[in-house]
Design a binder for these strands. Structure first.
Lengths: 203, 203
DNA sequence: CTTGAAGTTGACTGAATGGTAAACAATAAA
DNA sequence: TTTATTGTTTACCATTCAGTCAACTTCAAG
């Protein structure tokens, strides 16, 4: 019973968008409300603070979009190397899109946000960490599969995954800072090299 | 003639410290003044805004510390691979120190700051970019030397440098977000692997 | 010892922002 | 149609913060 509304979802989406494009610190609650078309009173009806909203936005984005996307990229129907290569290709295209839409390469919202607030906001830091860990696990599992199939050189899969993920996030960060997609263009190839890939045959 | 003072230097140092530990957005001019032991009136005597101060702080830190340190790490008296390996070892130790001092792994101030403000403050973004590019050039030059000496596999040195630097910054970012030095521990080894290093003999 | 440049101080303003409260509106179950 | 519940709105308060200003201090050159 009661009144129904999608204001909460609009706030979540607006918050993520603004924080991604700008930064956590510079985005005010008023700005989020305006973008979401919601009055401040309603904001505080749903969330007790910007921090709580940010955590909810990260979680919602993961469960409603991120999870499915990553599942797609890392689908078992693809060969392990194709998963990784395809993932990086998709990232490139996504960032390309963001650049034409926003005028900026935006990079990874999780990583940027996490790096910004990690010493100041434990709730956000913890949620970011959780999501990043989940993402690393996709890499790790693909690497394990690749090793089992003999396409990826043996060795600590977890370490390789961390390495690949660091390369990934570092490249996204550079791309964001320099507003230059060039830092992402070679990722598909570079990642294959790093993994000591023996590619069977791939386009 | 006139009065002499080191207030300007104290402001530069305080600003960098605070921004590094916390973030650009969360650090107020009042906080910088307090840490520097300077009144706000004096702040505005030396700098016209927090943004201008930040740019000056980055530049001063590079010319007065960073440059010399990097010159040391990448000294021609070391073998190209030793330069890179030693650099990553030093980074690890430095971050270890920061963690015991601040309670946090702080990562790279340039990268964190750049990622935070790059869509909002062109002056800072540009200065960050400048410094990051300089740092990449150290990598690139070491890689070139290593290739010339046959210790590093051939191929686009600039691309390899970018890749290594992305790995570096990505690892620092992860270490910061998760407050975990583990992301930095393997960098010396991993970097050697990535470069296709053929190490002659090294400890 | 005067003079003017360089630097310092503290009090002030105005705008932005986070946060509150109380009245109001819509909805569905009873 | 009542009623409880959920959501909305508006006006408001308090605080923080960037930025200003004019008076004051220190110093060194002449």
């Amino acid at each position: 019973m009661g009144r129904k509304s999608d204001a909460k979802e609009r706030l979540l989406a607006a918050a993520l968008d603004l924080i991604w494009e700008r930064s956590y610190g510079v985005v005010t609650i008023d700005a989020i409300c305006e973008k979401a078309g919601v009055k401040k009173g309603s904001f505080y009806y749903f969330f007790e603070s910007k921090s709580v909203l940010a955590v909810a936005a990260l979680e919602a984005d993961w469960t409603e979009r991120g999870q499915a996307k990553w599942d797609g990229y890392f689908s078992a129907s693809l060969s392990p190397l194709e998963r990784i290569k395809g993932f990086f290709k998709s990232i490139y295209e996504k960032q390309q899109l963001l650049q034409t839409e926003h005028g900026y390469v935006l990079g990874c919202p999780c990583f940027s946000l996490g790096s910004e607030v990690c010493t100041q906001d434990e709730a956000i830091r913890s949620k970011v960490q959780e999501i990043l860990q989940r993402q690393i696990r996709y890499f790790e599992s693909a690497i394990r599969d690749g090793q089992a199939e003999g396409q990826i050189s043996v060795g600590d899969a977890a370490a390789k995954a961390k390495c690949l993920f660091a390369l990934f996030e570092g490249s996204l960060g550079q791309a964001r800072i320099q507003n230059d997609l060039g830092f992402l263009r070679d990722l598909p190839e570079t990642s294959m090299d790093i993994l000591g890939a023996r590619m069977p045959v791939t386009a």
